[in-house]
């Protein structure tokens, strides 16, 4: 039962690696090193820009020179044109904003429902050994189900509206959060629990004051990955059958051999995911503000 947790943690590390270069750790260095680290930050940003120019410039150049066929590989200028066109004249399924909103709505609802369920069931099974032993094979089996097939089933059962996508997204999110919450609860320091019990805490008070805060590090680690999964659930659900959403726009581009359309959809989704990642980072810093800074610093490396 530990592998998804490990997966989720790796995901976080990846996430904060991106932030780390943004200077979060640099800002905390002693003053003496301040000037040097600002210089370094600048160089990092310059290098990042250079990487961008090389990749997209090279892409544009090679496709313009027809060394690489723009029909199959798209072209940055064409992607930008597609994006502008969608923004101005809408997609074939309504305005671009509506498509984004539908996908976001599905992803956010799925994220919230899946997270709530994952935390609830994770804490419950982490606390009640009997329950976790009884349900363990079923959870493993559910987790092993192929998600795409499940998505197809949901579309049939819940229809072409947003419900089927919300259910699929919740399902994906649930397992990521569940395994982490469960593991987090299992790793609670028995000393802290005993101390609270001796101080007079009831079982529920122990859960509220010790177990959940202590598992919070694990739960939040899973949220970074979980939102990604929510977006995947929404998009895959849309691809499997829907009337609106970015997944539909992407499928349509695919059917018309519009590579630039697929890339444009990808870029929009990436931006959404980055914004969500940033928001979850904010939440993390708020909820885990009590942590000694050295721990946060270590995790950015």
């Amino acid at each position: 039962m530990t592998s998804p947790a490990a997966q989720a943690r790796t995901g976080t590390n990846g996430g904060s690696l991106a932030e780390g270069t943004g200077g979060r750790s640099a800002g905390r260095r002693p003053r003496a090193a301040g000037g040097r680290s600002r210089g370094r930050k600048l160089r990092v940003h310059a290098a990042q820009l250079a990487v961008f120019v090389v990749i997209f410039g090279g892409w544009q150049l090679f496709t313009s020179l027809k060394i690489v066929d723009p029909f199959f590989f798209g072209q940055p200028s064409g992607i930008v044109r597609t994006l502008v066109d969608w923004a101005r004249h809408g997609t074939g399924f309504g305005s671009l904003w509506q498509q984004i909103w539908v996908t976001m709505e599905e992803a956010i609802l799925g994220f919230l429902i899946g997270t709530a369920g994952g935390v609830l069931v994770g804490v419950l099974l982490g606390q009640v050994r009997f329950l976790s032993e009884v349900l363990s094979p079923y959870i493993k089996a559910l987790n092993a189900l192929p998600r795409i097939v499940l998505g197809a089933l949901f579309v049939v059962v819940f229809g072409l509206g947003i419900e089927s996508k919300v259910v699929l997204a919740s399902f994906l999110v649930f397992f990521v959060v569940f395994f982490n919450a469960f593991q987090g609860v299992r790793e609670v320091d028995g000393n802290l629990v005993n101390n609270a019990r001796i101080l007079g805490a009831s079982r529920l008070q122990v859960v509220r004051n010790v177990v959940i805060p202590s598992a919070m590090t694990w739960i939040i680690a899973s949220l970074h990955v979980a939102f990604g999964f929510a977006v995947i659930g929404a998009i895959v659900g849309e691809i499997l059958g829907a009337q609106h959403g970015l997944g539909v726009v992407i499928t349509n581009s695919q059917n018309n051999f519009e590579t630039n359309g697929i890339f444009a959809g990808m870029i929009i989704i990436t931006v959404i995911a980055l914004v969500a990642e940033w928001l979850i980072g904010l939440l993390e810093r708020r909820l885990l503000a009590w942590r000694p800074q050295t721990t946060t610093e270590a995790s950015t490396l």
């Binding site: 802290l192 101080l199 009831s202």
Partner: peptide, 25 residues
């Protein structure tokens, strides 16, 4: 009351919160 061998304070609570735990519970 029991003072454990290793620290048993809740790291996410303030000092005041930690001391007030007993009566609150």
């Amino acid at each position: 009351s029991f003072m454990f061998q290793t620290d048993a304070l809740l790291p996410w609570k303030t000092v005041l919160g930690n001391v007030a735990m007993g009566p609150l519970f």
